[in-house]
Design a protein around this nucleic acid. Structure first.
Lengths: 340, 340
DNA sequence: CTGAAAGCGCTTACAG
DNA sequence: CTGAAAGCGCTTACAG
């Protein structure tokens, strides 16, 4: 079978390829009758538009890259879902990748995007991303928007939740229930998010005049499995805390599973808070008290900003858009046992 | 800044673009000295390879499409992870999409792949995919490989777990513990997987001489939330079953949460089996007895088959590759209370 | 409202 | 081992 292209249609209908091209894209320059005739015939013979050729000519590709740490992580999944909805609406194709916090894998993906002439990229940068990697992309005409994380020294807009404020909501909630020994489980200081959340916890404790002991900070876990494993370290602490502020819902649920496995009742013997308010949080047992982090707004606003930039409606400076989190109280938090 | 292309390099170095092109791709036709000179200079000035131009010329794009129901679903996530590893190794870019079981969304994605000249597609087809949609792709030079699901009438290789056998393992396990009233929760008869799993359950019951009551089949749920909700319907059944074979781990975990919320103890009062053996299954409380479904093998073999096809090492007929599942026994199953 | 022609940046015969 | 030339399939001034 011969490959069908614009000229195939043009020859069959006795018009030029220029006219066919304009007709298929609904140009008002083309007479209505011609347009209908062309479109009907294209459909009939099963014409497939060649985006590579068009893109080579116009240097627009209709491709938007999206890179996050791990698309299978429900936190990012919810952001991606919002981005997907926004991009689908505008007919952009989105090219997804995980970087698993490997700067090399991220760089390879950005290189691929440049090779494909991507119109822009939405990313949650890998830990220790050099600003140079971002600048290189920008220099090659790739507009960036960051979600959830940022890169110091990169002039790129960032959309994320207000982490210090949000973790403060969780910590204050526990304090108001009467808890005084509160641990913080999970996360790392290597991301801006991590530093902000830790700061929010420390500040909330300080405002209440409570001590923060170094051993109460069990850094690391960010997954359910890791939260599960952290339970034994947590339960072995001297001066065992009566509550745990967790890095995210995954860690909190894992920790609660670990606490339950040890024969204690999470939400009664130990209060636990999560972060993100994933769909799972509300069906966990006990239902998880957590902080809604605005994933949907983050994704939607980031996609919107990039699309506006691509359509020339705005330029992208390095501003920070903080989405205000909200506390959702459920059954995993209660008064400390000693107060009952 | 002027756009850097092959001719930019050629002019600077006094060689032709043909030589530059060959040198960058390590052609043995080019003298070693020339090759090194060209590569060094390209790196120095930050040349970006234009894949659109190359692809237009060669009609190979280096893009492989991957479509599944929902990439955020951990079952598909594990398959995707295996595909990702395999494709990364061969330098292919993979373009991911959800179809959410919308034939229209799937069709739009396949159309995009054809427009981009994708080299192939790995898909878990949407429910009720018309064979014509697949044939159209094949006719336009897009090789297909299916994972987890198939389409009747499409001549495409399929890689998936042996569902009837696998669900039989779970059902037999419960029967051997002494259960006689066993429900099946979740899933749909609209996919080949659904039909196979239901058949496996019915056949295992029949082999043991046990009755299957229609009301013991609570179809529908495939998510944790839906499993959670199904708990009340399950617990309200007359002749309440003592065990539930669930469609997958998500449903099983949701169901266990619902059972626990109702004050019963899953794994003691009601035995529950899952399917897939997701990472979560082992850390659930109680740890979930489930069937490992070979996601990794499915993804790896499917990717390998497609890559071999693209490299011309094999052709793709419509054969079925069944991966043998394995039962993983944990704490969510025990003897029925009445036998103790 | 329509057509002829140039050009996007590569790769591939072909000639030397 | 290297170069000149054609062509992949579009879109965009430009001319009429």
């Amino acid at each position: 079978m011969q490959k069908i292209k614009l000229s195939t249609i043009g020859e069959a209908l006795g018009v030029s390829t220029a006219t066919v091209s304009l007709a298929l894209r609904d140009s008002p320059l083309v007479a209505d009758a011609t347009r209908e005739k062309v479109k009907a015939y294209a459909l009939e013979i099963g014409y497939i538009y060649n985006r590579r050729a068009a893109s080579l000519r116009t240097s627009k590709s209709g491709i938007i890259g999206v890179v996050v740490h791990d698309i299978m992580n429900p936190f990012y999944a919810e952001i991606l879902r919002a981005i997907e909805i926004e991009l689908d609406r505008s007919g952009q194709t989105f090219l997804l990748s995980n970087h698993y916090d490997s700067v090399d894998k991220q760089r390879a993906f950005l290189e691929t995007l440049m090779q494909l002439g991507a119109d822009g990229v939405i990313m949650s940068p890998a830990i220790d991303t050099p600003p140079g990697d971002i600048e290189l992309g920008i220099k090659n005409g790739l507009p960036f928007v960051f979600v959830a994380r940022s890169v110091d020294g990169a002039d790129v807009p960032v959309f994320r939740g207000d982490d210090a404020y949000g973790i403060g909501l969780a910590t204050n909630h526990l304090i108001s229930l009467g808890h005084e020994r509160i641990a913080m489980i999970g996360g790392t200081d290597k991301t801006s998010t991590g530093r902000d959340r830790y700061r929010g916890y420390v500040e909330a404790m300080a405002r209440a005049g409570l001590k923060v002991r170094p051993q109460w900070r069990i850094a690391g876990p960010r997954t359910k499995a890791a939260g599960f494993e952290a339970a034994s370290a947590f339960l072995a602490l001297r001066d065992k805390p009566t509550a745990a502020v967790c890095w995210n819902d995954m860690v909190a649920i894992g920790l609660m599973n670990g606490i339950a496995r040890a024969g204690l009742t999470p939400g009664v013997d130990i209060s636990v808070t999560g972060y993100d308010d994933l769909e799972e949080a509300s069906i966990a047992t006990p239902a998880l008290t957590t902080v809604w982090n605005g994933q949907r707004d983050v994704g939607r606003q980031a996609a919107r900003a990039l699309l506006d930039r691509i359509e020339g409606k705005r330029s992208l400076g390095g501003h920070l858009e903080l989405i205000k989190p909200e506390l959702h109280v459920r059954q995993s938090t209660s008064q400390p046992p000693e107060n009952r």
